[in-house]
Design a protein around this nucleic acid. Structure first.
Lengths: 199, 199, 199, 199
DNA sequence: CATGAATGAGCCTTCATTCAT
DNA sequence: AATGAATGAAGGCTCATTCAT
């Protein structure tokens, strides 16, 4: 038990270091050697816990995503109305990315475009999150809150695509301002559209 | 003149080959050796036309983007109404990416997340395209066609983010269905919103 | 300890092989690949012990020079008279170069003309040797054995320059005859001059 | 004839440029491309005049040496006494090297240690110069000016070796002070030796 | 004669990964 | 369980040289 705990601590230490360095330098420019040095562990020991460099990379967001969607589900139980739920979802996604920019970099700049990741455990977690959004949109349709004709997949794509774009732009620049302040206008625009009502 | 043409042809041949291979295999997994072999040219000759592997990568989308936005501007002159213009822009962007998946891969999966590319000529061309969108949104606001309170940057982010997400998802999967059929429902949703009118 | 010994042995093995090949082929014409093959070690392993090809080159004469000057100092303690000491120094220098022509080539043909080497550890060792000569000349002046007006730096330059020239010429040709037999006439000429006494 | 002159001018232009760049950067770090650019001529044209990069290098000192030894012979006719002649030779050699440090670098730092150069035309010229020294020493012996027992080859080696050493040291450092002021003490020391007469 | 254009050949260095201890 | 040590594999880039025009 003590040993198990110790091993868990080492694994966590590796993951935390990997998140920081992968997040700052990207996959190619990060070396196992650097992670090992920063984590104060031998290179060989990293391979005791993770089979490959890519496996280590994939492991970083898995736990994070899992925790995120648990949190999301918990919050959504307290909220009534699909629009309010979507607002909450968007807020949580933006603020989570803002709070963990290294993890955000790994997901948004590295893994989103890695075909191998599509079949990994980490991506499964992310798919669960997408399902929550889909269900919420469907709930809004069923409740008459959203238009009957809207396409669930497209609507989710608008939400996710916009968040990804905002987060990515934020990550790629000097990150001067907060992301979360975009949540409200974003959900408003998606729900109400941009068309003038007077028309 | 004959020589100029010949050299232009060689350069174009390199670019076409690079586009194909970079698009299919990504930056790291593509070797100059492979491009040279496929383009039936020596490796050293590639360095006569492009100073580095990264420079070659950056050069691929530059010309494509330039041509795209010329075309876009040309079309937009013929269209009245900001909504119609946005519809056209979205259609052109989706169909262009669909027609050139390799170029799309380079832009969406490789360069969008490369900080060095942000300051390159190719990115300047892309910025010009974003400006067209911004101007069209502003035009809609000025004409009373769009709501006065909407945020131009956010609206553009919704449009671009969604397109990027749709294209990226399409690129990352088996690409079973057409992208362009999403243009109309996408612009409709953005303009009208998802809220039920009966509410 | 066993490991240390093993690693020391490998390092020595690399150095010996590098000395042989650098000495015979020069710096540019020697490849790390060849050294690795001859030393029966992988190329990558060489980089475990030496950071660059140039670093390996510089390391070759460092140890040799260090041992040489220890030996020289030891011998000089047994000798009385500055002239006799200079004779011994010249003899040791000529015979050392003759016994280790590869190391001599590295020093005389490669490193003596490398500005980067001037600031390296290896050159520091060589400077110590020059200091021994200077001190011996000064000792001869102080003892009245040598003329009072002679220039220590120039005298040392004559000794070193002549030795370098003799060794270099010997290295550049087929090396038919021995170097050491020049030691006695050389020191005699330097001490007595070439002027006819009858004059 | 006009053409011949023009070609001679181009060849000289290449040689002058090559001397400057080889002298400052050494052989390996000098590229044909750089010489061509500096000489305002195409790379291919250099190969019209010189067969290889090494051939160009070898050509630089050839003409210089030829002119030097013509000058030397001319001067020596005016001088009586072997010691005076040697003094003049040393002075001319030191001042020539000091006046043309780029050529000096090529000879002292590059070519002196190049075995191929030993058989080249440029080295033949240098050998002629050595012969002048040998003859002068022999002349001094025959005239009773120098000791009968001295070794001509060794004496010449002392002279040449010391000059090479002084010039090389001067080239390798910041060249703060003049070389020629060493000529007189050098020849004095060689002729008179360093031994105290009182002894 | 001059050169623009093309290339063959070559090599140092990095690093993820393995394995004996 | 932990790691020091070793390496296989890989690739971008340079440049002297050639040759058709």
């Amino acid at each position: 038990m003590a040993n198990l705990t110790k091993m868990e601590a080492r694994k966590t230490q590796i993951l935390r270091t990997a998140e920081r360095i992968f997040g700052k330098k990207g996959f190619q420019d990060t070396t196992i050697s650097e992670i090992a040095k920063e984590a104060k562990i031998s290179e060989a020991s990293i391979y005791e816990y993770f089979s490959t460099k890519e496996g280590l990379l994939f492991s970083v967001p898995t736990k994070n995503a899992s925790e995120l969607f648990k949190l999301m589900k918990f919050h959504l139980r307290l909220i009534r109305g699909a629009a309010n739920k979507l607002r909450s979802i968007i807020y949580i996604l933006l603020s989570t990315n803002e709070k963990s920019p290294d993890n955000a970099s790994i997901v948004m700049l590295i893994l989103k475009h890695n075909k191998k990741f599509l079949n990994s455990e980490g991506h499964l977690e992310i798919k669960k999150g997408l399902k929550i959004i889909d269900e919420t949109i469907q709930e809004g349709i069923n409740a008459g809150e959203f238009r009957n004709g809207i396409n669930v997949y497209l609507t989710r794509s608008i939400i996710i695509g916009t968040i990804e774009h905002l987060v990515t732009s934020w990550l790629m620049t000097e990150r001067p301002e907060s992301l979360v302040h975009m949540a409200d206008p974003l959900i408003d625009t998606i729900i109400e559209g941009i068309q003038s009502k007077t028309k």
